[in-house]
Amino acid sequence: MDFLITLVNGLSLGGIYAMIALGYTMVYGIAKMLNFAHGDIIMVGGYTILLFLPINPVLAIVAAIVFCVIVGIVVEKCAYKPLRGSSPLAVLITAIGVSTLLQSLAQVLFGSAPKQQMVDLGALKIGELSIGYSTIITLVCSIAVMVALNLFVKYTKTGRAMVAVSEDKGAAQLMGINVNFIIMITFAIGSALAALAGLFYFLKIQTMTTTFGALPGIKAFTAAVIGGIGSIPGAMVGGLLLGVIECIAQSIPALSPYTDAIEFSILIIILLVKPTGLLGKKRREKV
């Protein structure tokens, strides 16, 4: 019975990771860059929710999504677009710079003291089992978002353009796809998902700090790499897997202090066995 609860908790946490990992993986697939600042977009979302929560919960969610999308697009236009076509290392370092910038801006605006806001949605009781409603909502919403995203990528024109750009940017451009627009859309979707993830992660830990997004960001990044970065199903599988592993490790007293170390070790082992991740495609490299 305890194991079942652990599993549900794990899947719910995994859903959060998967949503963030989707942002990483889509941006990687299309712009061929690691967006290190993605974790901090979650933090931006979290603070926006915290600001608007006293007014209206629904407004808070909408505001968080809109604001995150704006921040994501601005970051892409100002910091990443000028570097398109230069070395990957330069882009990566800029992304790290953006991450630090967002964190320190948040600290200037909101201070470094953690802000707490209790949100209790109650718990579902089935016999002896008791599962928080927030956990269930997180699980259901994350699955819904993943299904919606899959449908979007498969059946809409924009979604298929995204696939085309990720496969061959030059060819896609010759076919009349506006690559810059597609990259912008990708950042917008990724940031919207990050805002949702920020909401659910906030429901889970209920404390806001400026490094709120750092840990789930790194974990989700790990999840995306485990699943094979650039692959959308890979991010989902990796996220759910990582969430379940984390909750199982935390439920065993001897292992719980080492949870993070276990997760990162699994990442290293998977990469050593399969360097492109579980569902990643192998790329041929030309000289």
Binding site: T94, G97, V98, T100, Q103, S104, L105, Q107, V108, S112
Partner: peptide
């Protein structure tokens, strides 16, 4: 934190 802010800007 202003220090970090300035570093980040310079870096970018």
């Amino acid at each position: 934190v202003l220090k970090d802010l300035i570093y980040a800007l310079i870096l970018i």
